[in-house]
Amino acid sequence: MSVGKIFKFHDDLDTDQIIASQYLLLPSIDEMKGHAFESLDPEFPKKVKSGDYVVGGENFGCGSSREQAPGVLKALGVQAVVAKSFARIFYRNAINIGLPVIVCKELPDQVETGDEMELSLTDGTATAGGSTYPCTKLPPYMQKILSQGGLIASLNKEEV
């Protein structure tokens, strides 16, 4: 994946912070995305560029099952989320919509918002600040869903 800028967040980042419940009634993900991370950094949707990365700590995406949370990140062009660990519903939702979620124990403590990072899904590595860190490789089943662009694309391909 290409080089992108990092936006770093804290441990136990819950999905209410990614997209608050009052915006879930907006008719589409595109209309919601301008409110991503509003309580933590209202400027985030303007600052983030296509190809950037979100980096989290432990338990990223805990709380509500709202699929709109990975949805707005993908819609804003976030290339992947790298965290020390993920809450399970967020993890499944992200894979299903084709947003790579990568577990990397070391990198999050070594980087800050604004740093640049490059990710290799096939090698299972993340590189930032001249250092390369090992990431947990996704199981083949999930790699397949991701490479096909998410669960819907994957299901449709199977039918063909």
């Binding site: 099952s65 709202r66 699929e67 519903i89 499944r92 939702n93 299903n96 919509i97 998410g150 669960l151 819907i152 299901l155």
Partner: peptide, 9 residues
């Protein structure tokens, strides 16, 4: 709990 894409499936 699951997301809406999996529910649709």
């Amino acid at each position: 709990g699951i997301g809406y894409t999996e529910m649709a499936a």
